[in-house]
Nucleic acid binder design. Structure first.
Length: 296
DNA sequence: CCTCTTTGTTGCAAAGTTGG
DNA sequence: CCAACTTTGCAACAAAGAGG
């Protein structure tokens, strides 16, 4: 049986008869005449090839088949109803939605403490899931509905995705304060002769820095490749290795923060979401909360 | 592309049927 | 016998097809 072959209103009638147990009462609730309900029931009986309700001591009692399907029918109706409400309102106090984010460790560390604080007070039943989705898989994940938001640099271009800038950061280099060869300034020669830590969630491939140096015909010595920038800082503190990271990540450390000896474009962080969620009130609410965090 | 016809669906009122 | 459900016939309507 194809869904297109059945009048969806019949499911509403089924649900109402189930609730009221009387066709006359169901008709009143539905604002149609009793024969219309009877007719609808007849059509439902045809579709399901089952009596669905049998008369028993003045009541229309559901058959086992009706009992088997009623819960799914009601869930489906509720789901359809909520899709209609999508444009109407979103009550953060009531919502029990789950929002899924793709973030790296840096954005998690920056966004989640502030976001969860807001959620705890304004939207107690909302859940958050965060995991890193590779860029190559991002568009697919959005269109499959596996993802609500992603935080990334403006590198993904697709007509199904919307993105907006959140913040701008600049790269700096950090070294330990007792570094034997570096103090307060950094020359290109020094930068190129020291060993580096490269942070990337990928297994291989350079970052923005390496791409830029490559254009100058240079290649730095990457001695350590790790996934998380927060893990890199203690390593810098104990070794002579250099680490090139966004300036915002250097706060609260007692490392030397050095200007890079070359000009490199600013690091822009963007928030991505699927075009079809543009007018979703829940999404709009969440976007505003994230924008708030970056306005601070 | 427009108009007319055909066909099928829906809901109504009224009449018929059924169970207690 | 009454209340409640079912059936019947009708009118309105929409969609699809036919014809100019």
């Amino acid at each position: 049986m194809q869904l297109s072959k059945i009048d969806m209103n019949l499911f509403i009638v089924l649900d109402t008869i189930y609730s009221e147990r009387k066709l006359t009462k169901a008709a009143e609730v539905l604002h149609i005449t009793q024969p219309a309900v009877s007719n609808a029931l007849a059509r439902l009986r045809g579709h399901f090839n089952d009596e669905l309700f049998v008369r028993q001591s003045g009541q229309m009692v559901p058959t086992p088949l009706t009992e088997n399907i009623i819960e799914r029918v009601r869930e489906a109706l509720a789901s359809l109803q909520s899709s209609l409400n999508e444009h109407d309102a979103f009550d953060p106090q009531q919502s029990n939605r789950t929002f899924r984010f793709s973030m790296n460790d840096t954005s998690e560390a920056y966004v989640l403490p502030r976001l969860m604080e807001v959620i705890e007070s304004e939207a107690p039943n909302i859940n958050i899931e965060s995991y890193t989705i590779p860029r190559a898989d991002m568009v697919r994940a959005f269109s499959a509905g596996e993802l609500d938001f992603a935080l990334d640099v403006p590198i993904i271009n697709h007509s199904d995705l919307v993105n907006t800038p959140l913040t701008t950061d600049r790269y700096v280099c950090v070294a330990r304060s007792e570094h034997p060869r570096i103090a307060s300034t950094l020359s290109l020669d020094q930068y190129m002769s020291e060993a580096h830590i490269h942070v990337s969630s990928r297994r291989k491939g350079g970052g923005q820095i390496d791409a830029y140096l490559g254009r100058l015909g240079l290649q730095r010595n990457i001695k350590l490749r790790i996934q998380h920038s927060r893990a890199a800082r203690p390593i810098v503190a104990k070794t002579d290795m250099l680490l090139t990271i966004p300036e915002s990540l250097t706060r609260g450390t007692n490392l030397q923060v050095l200007e890079l000896p070359f000009a490199i474009p600013m690091l822009d962080w963007h928030l991505y979401w699927a075009e079809r969620h543009e007018s979703d009130r829940a999404h709009q609410w969440m976007r505003e909360r994230i924008f708030d965090i970056f306005r601070e």
